[in-house]
Design a protein around this nucleic acid. Structure first.
Lengths: 135, 135
DNA sequence: ATAGCTGCAAAATGTTTGCATTGCA
DNA sequence: TGCAATGCAAACATTTTGCAGCTAT
């Protein structure tokens, strides 16, 4: 009954309310990268008394607890995904808006090398590729 | 008298007004990554009758003409820099907010390879590293 | 019991736009 | 001269917040 993300919240000592339970379930069941409006819509389907302010507050809470990640896909609003273990990036099909996830060890290595040469340790990073399908 | 960016505008057939001349000069003289509010502030110093709506409109115009680039440094507002020839990325010092630019040929090669393997041609891409100084 | 969460509505933030006027080419 | 650019203020979209009441622990 408890969603994957709800379990993470419990592990991290976050108080579980009915609203948070629903939002966690919505996020656990999402395989796309929904924005707050969409998360709110999906949550209301399960519990009509949730307000969008609570969704905003919960997203911040979950992000601070590293349970989810905030994305910027250059469409003017924040999008979210579950914070999985393997670090990955996004390729956005600019014609269709489709988002393709990828990861690449060589890329990870070169990023670390670049930062190191500049005298830094990386604590976070984002890469987005915007592309069109090859003919 | 004509700034570097103003010359680019003329080359690309954009109409030059007094306001655009000032904004182009401000951008040409900037070595940081100012947001609209800051560009507006610097412009007003040179010409107190510029409005912020004109700054917003001019930034869009210049971006569409590929004269400048819009950045997202995750602080909630758009930042801008001159669109120089060499593609580069940014390392943000999360302690100080300092922005360090870098470029790396191997990185470019890997990005192209990744996109190609996914069946895409890259038309744009962004990479930001967030780091803290090594001890 | 009570510290903290929620809903609501208002406010804040960043950006865009309608319209009357002004100004480049 | 005429079409496009400007200034102003209002509108917009997204996100945050103050407050009174509610709820999990």
């Amino acid at each position: 009954m408890n969603s994957r993300i709800e379990k993470l919240c419990v592990e991290r000592g976050l108080k579980i309310t009915e609203q948070r339970r629903v939002i966690c379930r919505v996020l656990s069941e999402s395989t796309d990268h929904p924005d707050v409006e969409e998360i709110f819509r999906r949550s209301v389907e399960q519990d009509p008394k949730i307000s969008i302010a609570t969704v905003y507050r919960t997203m911040r809470l979950l992000e601070e607890a590293s349970v989810i990640e905030k994305l910027d896909l250059r469409d003017g609003r924040a999008r979210y995904e579950e914070n999985r273990d393997e670090h990955h990036h996004h390729l956005i099909d600019v014609k269709t808006g489709a988002v393709i996830e990828f990861k690449n060890d060589e890329l990870e290595r070169i990023k670390a090398k670049i930062a190191s040469e500049l005298g830094y340790d990386i604590i976070d990073d984002r890469l987005e590729l915007y592309g069109i399908k090859k003919k």
